[in-house]
Design a protein around this nucleic acid. Structure first.
Lengths: 222, 222
DNA sequence: CGGAATCCTCTTCGATACTG
DNA sequence: CAGTATCGAAGAGGATTCCG
């Protein structure tokens, strides 16, 4: 009955009362990439258990973070999506993710993996750096990453990753997480990876290259 | 024995594995304002229970977030403080705090309060806005807030709140949380509050005014 | 008195089984 | 597919005790 709270008159404590519980911010991360059904979330969040997911979704709805909507027939299913308030968590989630990046050791492990998470991570960095050249004002590309269909929206140099394909992509990239990771590390270059076939591009070649270069840019020295 | 983790190869999940558990980020918040002893933390974090605090401090030490050091006699006590890695949480904690600010309703409640938390909250906003005029390059002032001795360090327009007094303050301000809150809301002005005695200043009047104006600046329209 | 370890109760979590 | 019901296990909170 009694939701556990910190009972502190402090903005951080209040925020943690709402999003500090287990799984909540990971659900937010999933919904940043687009609406999801109950069972979609169950799949991408291994270990959560359906009871707890139901509870979290109810709490998050009550807190105004998400809303659910019925898809019209014949889909006849319910999807959950972020509200404006929920989307405002972008900055905090992004900052936390950047902080956690150095904790990513070798990907070899019993860990669950998902191409989206890598793309979100790379996209998060672009929202940290001031990259707003006119060339990066507005770009939309599809990315088939390790067989998963994703897309990237770039607005004023800031990238957001999403599931599925974009309605009007200017280009389509096919590659692997390994390749993106090597690019980010500076171990290979965009042009080289295209030549060796590690990256395939359809549509606007220049747009795709711009996106790839933005995404795999290294952090400037602080 | 088995620390609970999300087991996801994802930067956000990794970050939450380390700082996502109950109380951890609130401990970080306290240590942002300076080193603290075990019992200091117990006092400022009502409800934590000493066993859990000990556990958290051990975990945070193992994760490289904090370190403990013995004070030389006659103090003969141990203090905990953030490491560099721990201080890097600044951005994430600040972003979360800003997100939570709208959840602060009327301060009338059973909630625990502490002048430091208000000051940290106000300071967090200055780190969000680009305010880097030469006048705000480097300022250090003491603040006696609701009887609590605190201080503010301002570097390049970005304020950090701390406990106790600064070794070399340029000015000292005495006021109340209520007054700062009203200033932030725009209900009163700095000059007016000084005239009515709601704010007292010793030392460099101009420095104190600059700090107060920075601190209580309203958010520019996004 | 500061800094914990111990014990006990209550809540939350995670997995499985079950229902509309 | 979208949840609810249930139950053992882990975690949290409070008090007490121990040690220097």
């Amino acid at each position: 009955m009694s939701r556990r709270t910190y009972d502190q008159y402090c903005a951080l404590a209040k925020a943690l009362d709402v999003v500090g519980e287990r799984w909540t911010l990971l659900i937010v991360r999933e919904l940043f990439a687009g609406p999801q059904r109950f069972s979609d979330l169950l799949q991408t969040l291994p270990g959560i258990g359906n009871g707890l997911l139901a509870t979290r979704l109810r709490e998050m709805q009550a807190a105004g973070l998400i809303e659910s909507s019925e898809l019209p027939p014949p889909a006849a299913s319910r999807v959950y999506q972020l509200t404006r308030r929920g989307r405002q968590l972008d900055e905090a989630v992004t900052a936390l993710g950047r902080w956690g990046e150095v904790l990513l050791a070798a990907p070899t492990s019993e860990e669950h993996r998902h191409p989206l998470w890598l793309l979100q991570s790379l996209a998060a960095h672009t929202r940290h750096m001031p990259n707003s050249t006119p060339e990066l004002a507005r770009l939309d590309v599809d990315i088939l990453l390790d067989g998963q269909q994703l897309h990237l929206r770039i607005r004023s140099g800031r990238a957001m990753a999403g599931r599925g394909s974009h309605p009007h992509p200017q280009a389509a990239i096919t590659t692997t997480g390994e390749t993106l990771y090597a690019l980010k590390k500076g171990q290979i270059q965009v042009e080289g990876a295209i030549e060796t076939g590690q990256i395939e591009i359809r549509g606007d070649q220049e747009v795709a290259r711009r996106v790839l270069r933005l995404l795999t840019l290294s952090e400037p020295a602080a």
